[in-house]
């Protein structure tokens, strides 16, 4: 790890000030993405601004048609939140699939989406649920937030404070793990809203998380796995690597999308029975 100067921010304004004032400053929340990169000397910020001691950034608050989750809420907290489990069970499940228990105790929602790793899970949920990313400056729709590999619409001294997730009628996330890293090799989040269906894919896109309009249209007609039969995603623009070629990823997207739709329907059937 290269050396850096450490700053502990007492509040958001101070953190913003530090980001503006110090050269090559980077925020650290849980550090579960940043620290591994710094250890491998792939990231070398000159200044590190720790958000860990700022109070009030991890609240989970239900609203009528959405849930607001603080940026510093850990994956563990989101996974175990009664509010999220009740209102958006697919999101609670997704949070429980990120990394493993020790990582979930440290990793945060804000850290994950600010980092925008192309194999991260949360970006798929944000995109499919039509989330709004709330920052110190503004509210950014998820569709405009994820701009490329490890790239977001965040400005240099802008800090995510919360994410507002609209509730969905039905939703589910399916993840096919990379056998080595256990990150998503393909992750598919489907969400049926009152007015539309959104399907977001992580792990597979050469430029990060993306939506599949053809799947969305078909599911809008009929929200069932059968509606996706015969539909495929082009391998162009998908990642190919040692573990999965682009055509294999394209194939998995189809399989997982059907399974996600089935799981979303099954969840609702179950809750209807209760």
């Amino acid at each position: 790890m290269y050396n850096f100067i450490y700053h502990r921010a007492a509040g958001l304004r101070q953190a913003q000030h530090m980001l503006g004032e110090f050269d090559d400053a980077k925020l650290i929340a849980g550090g579960q993405s940043l620290l591994p990169m710094m250890k491998l000397r792939l990231a070398a910020p000159a200044n590190l601004v720790d958000l860990g001691k700022i109070a009030g950034l991890s609240d989970i608050e239900p609203d009528v048609r959405s849930i607001s989750i603080g940026a510093m809420a850990t994956h563990f907290e989101v996974h175990n939140s009664a509010v999220v489990q009740e209102a958006l069970p697919a999101l609670a499940e997704l949070a429980g699939m990120i990394g493993e228990p020790a990582v979930r105790h440290r990793g945060t929602l804000g850290g994950s989406i600010a980092h925008n790793d192309p194999t991260a899970d949360y970006p798929a949920a944000c995109l499919a649920l039509g989330a709004t990313i709330i920052t110190t400056e503004r509210r950014i729709p998820a569709d405009a937030f994820f701009t490329g590999l490890f790239e977001t619409a965040l400005m240099p001294d802008e800090i995510i404070t919360a994410v507002s997730f609209p509730l969905a009628e039905k939703a589910a996330y399916q993840k096919f793990r990379n056998p080595a890293s256990r990150y998503a090799m393909v992750g598919v989040f489907v969400a049926k809203h009152a007015s539309d269906v959104r399907v977001a894919i992580t792990g597979a896109g050469a430029s990060g998380v993306f939506r599949v309009p053809a799947f969305e249209e078909a599911l809008q007609g009929r929200f069932s796995p059968e509606a996706l039969e015969g539909l495929t995603v082009s391998a162009d623009g998908l990642t190919g690597d040692l573990h999965a070629s682009a055509p294999y990823r394209a194939h998995l997207i189809g399989v997982l999308a059907r399974r996600a739709v089935a799981a979303a329907n099954e969840r609702n059937d179950r809750s209807d029975e209760l």
Binding site: Y6, R8, I28, G31, Q32, L35, P36, K39, L48, D50, G52, F76, P101, A102, V103, H105, R106
Partner: peptide
């Protein structure tokens, strides 16, 4: 809570 101590700065 369980954490990976290789992925936590002491200052954190």
């Amino acid at each position: 809570k369980a954490v990976k101590s290789c992925t936590v700065l002491t200052l954190q």
